[in-house]
Amino acid sequence: MWTGEVVKLLRENFICVSVDSRSEWARKDAVGDMVRRTKCVTVTANGKTAVITPQGEKLEECPWNTPGVFAASIRKALQKWQNLPEEQRRAGQESKLVSGSTVRKGPAGRPSPPPGALVVAVYQRRFIRAAEGQLRYLEQSDCNPGEGQHRWRQLREAARDFMWVPENEWKALIPKTPQPGQKVPIPTTFALRLFRFHLDPHRGLGEGIEFAHADLSAGQLSLVVESVQGDRVLLRLEGEAHLEAKKPEGYTTTYAPRILGYIQADTKSGRLTRFDMLAFGEESGTPRKLLPGTHLLGIVFELIENPKESELVYPRGARDDLRSYLEPASKLAQSR
């Protein structure tokens, strides 16, 4: 649906916003009144796209998941906009719904990255073993009947999420006087956040979190200074995880990746200049049984130095409980 034509139309002619409908619907202000009056956001579990004017009048609904209709509906919305009187369309105005200090900068009622936190892009993709142990991207025929057949294209693509690493945590990864071979302790909050929220086969498939109950025993991580050149220190992160979730439906989802990553910092400025990781290993019991058997799941982590606004969206793991995401507690420690 998001064809080159659609992307071009939207980039050139519209202000585009991506929102959580529940937060917008619950607002007790003029924008909330407009949202409920126009129903410009979804009221069901499905996503929705609609076009409104800056003064809060709905121009068109654009059924984004209906092939062939989406682009036409966007063009129709644009035509309706262009047919409005010039005084309603001209630039340099204010919206009567928002003004000055009342303008919310972030998502309504939802978390933003803590000051100083790293924003890390997360991408993940499945691979199928081809003949002689080689790998390929998945095909429609690899997927189970039903939802797997409907969503195979989505399953094939890279899914996205974001990881936030609080400032105190990433600073703890950089030794003050690094020496090659030096072992650096990894904060338990980092390991728990990784195991619980970011080695998750559910990303790209829906909102579920597979391994929310994982503890430190789910894996091991080590961080070693690989090289020191002047003020530049390079560290190598290695490890593995063995994650498992028994599903009420009677099957078990497992993911057992090896983990490798590199962290580079400038010890003089205290800046972190590289933070990337890769988790790669076997997944079985794909959430909602979309794929049969076992296959390989790879997850890439990559530092975003200057995130765009669209990249400041909260990680899925932070959506419902920011504190449990940023400061995950070990159940093992609590039980001692």
């Binding site: 939207l10 002619n13 519209f14 202000i15 585009c16 916003v17 991506s18 929102v19 959580d20 409908s21 529940r22 917008e24 410009c40 956001v41 979804t42 069901t44 579990a45 499905n46 996503g47 929705k48 796209t49 609609a50 076009v51 409104i52 004017t53 800056p54 121009l59 654009c62 984004w64 966007i74 919305a77 644009l78 906009w81 369309r89 001209r90 630039a91 340099g92 105005q93 939802r110 829906g206 909102e207 969206v313 909260y314 899925r316 959506r319």
Partner: peptide, 12 residues
């Protein structure tokens, strides 16, 4: 002077 394209989801 542009219309607003609103993409909304119930889970984020």
């Amino acid at each position: 002077g542009k219309p607003i394209f609103v993409f909304s989801g119930a889970g984020g």
